[in-house]
Design a protein around this nucleic acid. Structure first.
Length: 553
RNA sequence: GUCCCAGUAGCUCAGUGGAUAGAGCGGCUGCCUUCUAAGCAGAUGGUCGCGGGUUCGAAUCCCGCCUGGGGCACCA
């Protein structure tokens, strides 16, 4: 249990006692009992519960606050409980208890920051899942970072996390890719190759066609009918997938499972789901197509499952896919991270999940809003088909993985963002990313200097850590588990970089005011302990964000 | 037309019912004989898009409007 929950439970307990002995009237307890006040003069925690209770209790809020505050009382953990007008209760954590938490952080080591919120629960996070028909671009990078950090944080909160990439290796777009690549291949062989309408026109396919011609010669041209295009296409898709993995790797993004859409068909899950939907009375035939009757479930309209051509839509695949996630693999929760262009997809997938007898509340969809790429204020158009675009690879090469991750992560997923390449590179000289990493490097430097000087800190007395800067640093370190839990609750990982910035501010201020290695051996070892605790904190934050924690800069 | 998201400091963005609205970047003033100045301290900078409403209390909730982006395909 982290600190905020601890304090909240103390308040609830006090309220319950007051109500059971008639000191205060019995009314429902407010949801939010405590918050972190903005102003440090108001203590470590503040409760506005008396103000909220005043109406239902028909009492003066100050009177409620006085009675509650008396019942909370002080002890080893809470050193002060004060009432402030017009009805706040301000709670201060005992400095002695804060100091002892430094020992606790050292004891936890790399596990510091973890919680048990998701203990015993499995959760799947599916992200990126871009069709393997072309290179990843800037917009995909946002979802990739979002998914990877969310997965890490969920892991820190005790969930058993499975990170998944859904590979759309079936369907129209794949056929189109086969034909497009075959056309480029034929062109490379200086034969007639007609690009299909809406084909993939990017430079990458021209290059790949050229390469295939060099490696394989006319082998595929000589094959009969469409077989050449399919055989070549399969090789091409493999190559695209390799490139995607490589690009994601350069951004420190990885997956546990690469799930093949085709397997839903070859392993009959598609048939199973279609039968379930049919048996459940959710399927109708109309205009030659097969429809999912979502309008009967409160949707605006029905959705096509099987086109009049007999080819299933991606929506049909998605139904089978989510059946596989929930029923076959039995995940307790599933998070899908999609781009803004999939917004209209959410309700119907939830509807079909519900129609399959699954609690659709277990499925959560996060939409990563659009990224507008700019270069010196000029908007750079992103189009997969024209080839005029900035790929994820170029982005990482230009800006660097750490800075990319930070910039994408620091913005909330549902806000559109401008990503200015010139600005990101320019700022990287004097940039928030370095502010965080510099804190870690400074700590590592102090600790290695101490080690070289033969100084140890095992016996350090944490109660010597009494300056405001030292206590502020400890306070901020102890917020990490709260941040982890609040990210899990809101599914908003952008809180992590903001928290880490605040932690860095607390540290840099400490560094400036409190020299660690001095002639005072007792104080030196106490401060070394704090430095090690802080280093553990920064290392954990940076690791959760997938960023480097350098020992030197 | 309709649904969703956004509009907060010069710029990029946090803050979604509490007390004096924050950070980074840019600009201004100070601070390096001591563990890394990629740092610290301070000052300046805001009608929280606009107008109503609810509340003891609104950037935050409700209604209307304005602006920008996206969704409403037998595309993915």
């Amino acid at each position: 249990m982290h600190l905020r929950d601890l304090v909240a439970s103390r308040l609830v307990e006090a309220l319950n006692r007051a109500q059971s002995d008639q000191t205060l009237p019995s009314v429902p307890v407010p949801d939010a009992m405590v918050e972190r006040p903005q102003n440090v003069d108001h203590g470590d925690f503040a409760s506005s519960a008396p103000l909220k209770l005043a109406r239902t209790m028909h009492m003066n809020p100050m009177e409620i606050a006085e009675k509650l505050a008396a019942l909370v009382g002080t002890d080893q953990e809470i050193s002060a409980v004060e009432v402030a007008a017009p009805g706040f209760i301000n709670i201060t954590i005992a400095p002695g208890w804060l100091q002892e938490q430094v020992n606790d952080i050292l004891a936890q080591g790399d596990a510091f920051g973890s919680t048990e919120t998701g203990k015993g629960q499995t959760i799947q996070v599916e992200y990126v899942s871009v069709n393997p028909t072309g290179p990843l671009h800037v917009g995909h990078a946002r979802g990739a970072v979002l998914g990877s950090v969310l997965s890490s944080v969920l892991g820190a909160a005790g969930y058993e996390v499975s990170r998944e990439y859904y590979l759309n290796d079936a369907g129209n777009q794949i056929d189109l890719f086969h034909q497009s690549l075959f056309a480029r291949y034929l062109q490379a062989l200086e034969k007639d190759g007609d690009m299909p309408d809406n084909g993939y026109r990017g430079q990458y396919l021209i290059d790949l066609g050229q390469e295939m011609a060099e490696i394989h010669g006319a082998k595929f041209f000589d094959m009969k009918s469409d077989k050449g295009a399919v055989a070549l296409g399969a090789i091409g898709i493999e190559r695209m997938i390799e490139n995607i993995k490589e690009d994601l790797g350069s951004l420190q993004v990885g997956f546990d499972v690469w799930f093949s859409e085709t397997s839903l068909y070859t392993d009959n899950y598609y048939d199973t789901v279609m039968k379930m939907l049919t048996d459940g009375g959710h399927v109708t035939q109309r205009e030659g197509a097969t429809w999912f009757g979502s309008s009967a479930l409160g949707e605006e309209k029905d959705n096509v499952l099987i086109r009049s051509t007999g080819v299933p839509t991606y929506f049909a695949s998605d139904a089978a896919y989510h059946y596989h996630k929930f029923v076959i693999r039995g995940f307790d929760r599933v998070i899908d991270i999609w781009g803004a262009d999939h917004m209209g997809h959410i309700d119907r997938v939830k509807a079909v999940v519900g129609a399959l007898g699954i609690d659709s509340g277990k499925l959560e969809v996060i939409i990563g809003q659009m990224v507008t790429l700019k270069r010196g204020g000029e908007t750079v158009k992103i189009s997969k088909r024209t080839g005029d675009m900035i790929s994820l690879k170029e982005l990482v090469e230009e800006v660097g993985s750490d800075a990319c991750r930070f910039f994408f992560l620091a913005r909330s997923a549902d806000a559109q963002m401008d990503f200015d390449l010139e600005l990101a590179v320019k700022e990287s000289q004097d940039n928030p990313v370095y502010y965080l990493q510099y804190a870690h490097a400074r700590l590592a430097g102090i600790l290695s200097n101490a080690a070289e000087g033969g100084k140890t800190f095992d016996q350090g007395d944490v109660h010597l850590l009494s300056t405001p800067e030292e206590l502020t640093l400890i306070r901020h370190l102890l917020m990490l588990p709260e941040v982890v839990d609040s990210i899990v609750e809101t599914m908003e990982p952008h809180h992590l970089p903001h928290y880490t910035m605040e932690l860095a501010t607390a540290f840099h201020s400490f560094y400036d005011r409190c020299r660690v290695i001095t002639d005072d051996e007792a104080l030196t070892s106490a401060r070394l302990k704090l430095c090690e605790a802080a280093r553990i904190g920064f290392a954990r934050c940076l690791s959760l964000m997938g960023m480097n924690a350098p020992d030197k800069m």
